[in-house]
Write a protein that binds this DNA or RNA. Structure first.
Length: 418
RNA sequence: GUGAGCGUGGCCUAGCGGUUUAGGGCGCCAGGUUGUGGCCCUGGAGAUCGGGGGUUCGAAUCCCCUCGCUCACCCCA
């Protein structure tokens, strides 16, 4: 027997309303903030992610689905959405449009990772990016958009974790301080941290190992070393967020797993934090476009995991709006009646009434049983008798009198809601 | 990549070495009503007990491997 590959899942019809709910809400709010949709390829040149996401990240080191196509090209199923969008911005000269260019996208992402709740090998995220503007107002606007979507979905108890990790001006000096601080402590921290000390010192602050916590507690805080520009940017952002009534938790230890971030970084955490804390997250990446061979382009963005949002919706007992379900079931007996039934059903559908017709030569009883199980409001009954009289029987499934109407009248009545 | 728990028809599950041709509930299909559902009754289909190998006279039940799920670590959406 075949099974869906590890870490992937089938979304069955019962599950689909959750997805539609999240996607519709996101689209609705994206439009209100002036974000336009972009769709980019599912795979890209491997080099895009090597340079974009960062060579020392876990994603690039061990989680990418990389393959060679028949032409010998090195390709990778995208592990995240931002690199593609920046690539498209550069490739299509979007810098010549009014800045910032505000974009959103629903992306399917792939990471080779050990699956568990809220973590899959194929997963989906909603991505928003604003490219070409440095103003912290854009950071605030973007974060507010994400927050409003969570609110519109009805999620409660979320916290916004916010930090600034500086830029090319102030971060190198800070990293030097951090290294100096850690040098005498290296013997006391875990192996991962000893490696991070070399490859990615910022991540030292992010370690969860108990032995490393004392070192982290005494470590210099990046926030104290921000250059004037970064500090100003951060202060302005906080003001905007306060004005937007978004409760912010300053988290000096918040660091993100992708290398391209500068200044603003943030994550949104659900109240009941499992292992997979982040519902969504993002930040500013002013150096990425240049890194990918474009002109220097300031930008901010976020991604939120659809599966994780849905998990949180369920945990909070939030039920998505139901999708249109069949409201009418046309049952019949006999060949002649079947043709009349199919014609009637088709007319109902053209009038916008979701309608099902009995199939498979079932008995009237079996057809009504189905109609009942499907929860339709009305059954329409057609047999030789009705055919001879030029009528159809309208049967309210909730109980009550049946009524005989001419087919045209029945269509009108059902189209009007019964 | 590391550690732990679990895996019986579509779903929930009983059975945990020998009246098992694997039992029940839900769901599905049909009959009880030669054209009328929901309740009830009856019947039917549907399981190589995740897969493979081994131990044994005998395995769903014990052992090994493998696949998958869950949880924690790690990482992140």
């Amino acid at each position: 027997m075949f099974q869906a590959p590890r870490g992937t899942q089938d979304i069955l019809p019962e599950e689909a309303p959750y997805w539609t709910f999240v996607e519709q809400t996101a689209r609705d709010w994206a439009a209100r903030y002036g974000y336009g949709e972009i769709r980019t390829p599912t795979f890209e040149d491997t080099g895009l992610f090597l340079r974009g996401v960062g060579g020392s990240t876990d994603i690039v080191e061990k989680e990418m689905y990389t393959f060679q196509d028949k032409g010998g090209g090195e390709l990778t199923l995208r592990p995240e959405g931002t690199a593609s969008i920046v690539r498209a911005y550069i490739e299509h000269g979007l810098a010549s449009r009014p800045q910032p260019v505000r974009l959103f996208s629903f992306v399917t992402c792939f990471r080779y990772d050990r699956p568990q709740r809220g973590r899959y090998r194929e997963f989906h995220q909603w991505d928003c990016e604003a490219l070409g503007e440095l103003d912290p107002l854009v950071d605030a606007e973007l974060i507010t958009l994400l927050w409003r979507v969570y609110q519109a979905l009805g999620l409660r108890g979320l916290t916004l974790q916010l930090n600034s990790i500086g830029d090319a001006q102030c971060r190198p000096a800070y990293l030097e301080r951090l290294r100096e601080y850690y040098r005498p402590l290296l013997a006391t921290v875990c192996g991962d941290c000893q490696r991070r000390y070399q490859t990615n010192p910022l991540r030292l602050l992010d370690c969860k190992n108990p032995p490393c916590q004392t070192a982290i507690a005494g470590a210099p805080r990046l926030l104290d070393y921000l250059c004037a520009e970064c500090a100003e940017h951060f202060a302005a952002l906080r003001t905007y967020l306060t004005d937007a009534d978004i409760p912010v938790e300053l988290n000096p230890r918040l660091v993100r797993g992708l290398d391209y971030y500068t200044k603003t970084v943030f994550e949104v955490w659900p109240a009941a934090a499992g292992a997979q804390t982040a519902l969504g997250g993002g930040g500013r990446y002013d150096g990425l476009a240049e890194q990918l061979g474009g002109r220097p382009t300031p930008a901010v963005g976020f991604a939120t995991g659809i599966e994780r949002v849905i998990l949180t919706l369920k945990a909070q007992g939030i039920v998505p709006p139901a999708l249109p379900a069949p409201r009418v079931y046309v049952a019949y007996l006999g060949d002649a009646a079947r043709r009349a039934a199919v014609r009637l059903a088709d007319r109902l559908r053209q009038r916008g009434v979701p309608t099902l017709v009995g199939v498979g030569g079932r008995s009237m009883r079996a057809q009504l049983r189905q109609a009942n199980a499907l929860g339709v409001a009305w059954a329409v009954l057609i047999g030789d008798d009705e055919l001879a009289r030029g009528v159809v029987q309208l049967k309210p499934m909730a109980g009550g009198e049946e009524l005989a109407l001419a087919p045209e009248a029945a269509v009108e009545r059902l189209a009007a809601g019964g």
